[in-house]
Design a binder for these strands. Structure first.
Length: 483
DNA sequence: ATGTGC
C-alpha cells in the first residue's frame, strides 16, 4: 500500500486504519482514520502528522480520530474528532476551527423540479438578493449590543421570537439551536464589533446556499426519508452551509492568543503551536468554552435568519406563503464545535472539526422526533456533484464518540484550483449542465470547482460500511449561491 | 474560514 507517510498504518477493518502509539513519542492513544483503502492512499501527509499530534494532547481518551473527508488543517486535521476528559483533559480552539459552529441546514419544500425549472433563474436572482454573501458582507438585521448579547445566549430561539422563522423549527436543530452556558461578557469588543452586522449573511470560501433536487433513484431508505419529510418524485430542497462569520473568527483568534500564554502557565507542551490548548477546567478553558458557545449560538441564529430570507424569496417567486410551500426545516447540524457529552469513559469534551455529530436512535439526547430515525446528518458535496442526507447510528456513539464525516473534503489547494479552473468558464459549463450559479467572486468560484474535491459518494461509502451512519438519500444541485 | 497581513 502506497501512503503519503512513513508511519506504520495497520488495517483494523476495510474502513478503519490505526497508527499505533509506538509511531510517535508522546502519543497517549492510537490514531484511527476512517477511510476506504483508496481514500486513505489519497490522503495528504498532513493528516497522518496532525492526527498523531492530537493523540499526544493531555487527557485524550481512546483514539484521535480522522474521518474519510479529512485533510490538513490548522493544528487538528479537518475531519478530526478528539475527546478529552473534563477533569484532566484540555480544550483547544484548533480542534474546533476558526469558523465556530460552521454547519449545515436542510429545508424541504412541496415543490418539484417541474415547478421550479421555469422560474429557476428568477429564484436564484431573488435568493442572491435576499441572502447577502461574500467577505465582509453585512446583513439586513440591525442589532443593538443588548440584542446581539441575546443572540449569543439564545441562538436560533432569539430569531424565532423575533419572527425569523417558526417555533417548530427549533426541535429540528442540534441542541434546539441554543446551547446553554454562553456568557457574552467574556467576548471581546473587537469580536462583537465584527459580528454585530453580520446576522443572516452567507460568507465566502466553501460557504453556499444550494437549491437541490432529490434524485428519485437515489433514495436508499424511503421509510427514513419520508419520516424526515422527503418523499421523492424530484422534490426540491434547499441546503445551507455557513457559520459564525467574522464573530466566530475573532473569538477563535482572541483565545488562541490567550491559550499560548496559558500553556506556559500550565506547563503544557504540544507538538505544534497550532494545537494551543488549556485545561478544560481552567479559567482560560472555561472562558473559551463559553465564548465558543456564544459564537455557536450566533451561527445557529445566522442560519435561522438565512432560512427566513430563503422562505421569503420562495414566497415572492412562487406567489404562495412559505408555509403553503411546505418549507419545513429538516435539520440543522454543526460540524465545527466542542461539546461535553457522556460516554463509557465519563464526561468528555468532544471536539468535532469538520466532523458531524451522528447520534443513533438509542440516544436519550435526541428529541422524540428523531428517536425512530436517528439524528439527521447533512453532508454537502462540491457544488458540481451531489450532497447526502444520512442518519447517525448507535454504533457511531460506541465507536467514534457519536461522530461522522461532514462533506467531500478537498484534494486540491485553493491556489491550485484557481490555476486549473477559470470561474467564468466553470459558471458557463455548469449552466449547460442545468446548474445556475450566482457568485460574488469568480476566483472564489474557481476555488470551489468539483475537481478540487474528493468523490463524496466514496467518502460516504467509507462511513456507511464502517457502520457509523446509515445512508438515506442523495441530492443533486440545480442552483447555487456563493460568496 | 476570515475586514484573506502584525
Amino acid at each position: 500500500m502506497n501512503l503519503n507517510t512513513d508511519m506504520t498504518v495497520n488495517r483494523i477493518t476495510d474502513e478503519i486504519w490505526e497508527i499505533p502509539m509506538s509511531e510517535k513519542p508522546g502519543m497517549l492513544v492510537p490514531a484511527r482514520i476512517y477511510a476506504t483503502e483508496g481514500i486513505l492512499q489519497a490522503m495528504d501527509s498532513g493528516v497522518f502528522d496532525q492526527v498523531t499530534n492530537v493523540a499526544c494532547l493531555p487527557g485524550i481518551r481512546r483514539y484521535a480520530l480522522c474521518m474519510p473527508d479529512g485533510h490538513w488543517g490548522y493544528g487538528f486535521p479537518i475531519g478530526g474528532v478528539a475527546a478529552f476528559d473534563v477533569q484532566d483533559g484540555v480544550i483547544s480552539p484548533g480542534g474546533v476551527g476558526y469558523d465556530i459552529n460552521c454547519g449545515m441546514r436542510l429545508i424541504r419544500t412541496d415543490l418539484t423540479l417541474a415547478d421550479v425549472q421555469p422560474y429557476l433563474e428568477k429564484l436564484m436572482t431573488e435568493l442572491f438578493r435576499k441572502v447577502p454573501a461574500g467577505v465582509g458582507a453585512s446583513g439586513f438585521v440591525r442589532l443593538s449590543r443588548e440584542d446581539f448579547g441575546r443572540v449569543m445566549t439564545h441562538g436560533a430561539k432569539w430569531c424565532v421570537e423575533r419572527g425569523y422563522g417558526w417555533h417548530r423549527d427549533l426541535v429540528r436543530m442540534e441542541e434546539g439551536g441554543c446551547i446553554e452556558g454562553a456568557d457574552p461578557s467574556i467576548v471581546t469588543d473587537h469580536a462583537l464589533q465584527r459580528g454585530i452586522n453580520q446576522l443572516g449573511t452567507l460568507g465566502s470560501g466553501n460557504h453556499y446556499l444550494e437549491v437541490q433536487v432529490v434524485s428519485n433513484e437515489r433514495i436508499f431508505d424511503p421509510v427514513t426519508a419520508a419520516a424526515l419529510g422527503i418523499t421523492g418524485h424530484e422534490q426540491i430542497v434547499v441546503m445551507v452551509h455557513c457559520g459564525s462569520r467574522g464573530f466566530g473568527h475573532q473569538v477563535a483568534s482572541d483565545y488562541l492568543k490567550v491559550f499560548e500564554k496559558a500553556m506556559r502557565r500550565y506547563g503544557i507542551t504540544v507538538k505544534d503551536q497550532q494545537l494551543a490548548c488549556a485545561p478544560f477546567r481552567s479559567p482560560e478553558g472555561q472562558d473559551y468554552f463559553s465564548a465558543m458557545n456564544c459564537a455557536a449560538n450566533t451561527a445557529f441564529a445566522n442560519r435561522q435568519v438565512i432560512t427566513h430570507q430563503i422562505r421569503e424569496a420562495f414566497a415572492t417567486v412562487f406567489g404562495r406563503s412559505a408555509e403553503a410551500l411546505g418549507m419545513e426545516l429538516v435539520y440543522d447540524v454543526a460540524h465545527n464545535i466542542a461539546k461535553v457529552e457522556r460516554y463509557a469513559e465519563g464526561e468528555l469534551v468532544v471536539h468535532r472539526k469538520g466532523a458531524t455529530r451522528a447520534f443513533g436512535p438509542g440516544s436519550p439526547e435526541l428529541p422524540e422526533t428523531f428517536r425512530q430515525t436517528g439524528q439527521p446528518v447533512i453532508c454537502g458535496g462540491s457544488m458540481e456533484t451531489g450532497s447526502y442526507l444520512l442518519v447517525g447510528t448507535d454504533q457511531a456513539v460506541r465507536d467514534t464518540f457519536g461522530s461522522t464525516m461532514h462533506g467531500a473534503g478537498r484534494t486540491m489547494s485553493r491556489a491550485q484550483a484557481k490555476r486549473t479552473v477559470r470561474g467564468e468558464q466553470l459558471q458557463l459549463q455548469m449552466k449547460k449542465r442545468g446548474i445556475v450559479v450566482k457568485a460574488v467572486s469568480m476566483s472564489g468560484l474557481a476555488e470551489e470547482a468539483g475537481l478540487a474535491y474528493k468523490n463524496i459518494s466514496e467518502v460516504v461509502e467509507s462511513v456507511a460500511r464502517a457502520g457509523i451512519i446509515r445512508k438515506v438519500l442523495e441530492l443533486r444541485p440545480i442552483g447555487n449561491i456563493k460568496g
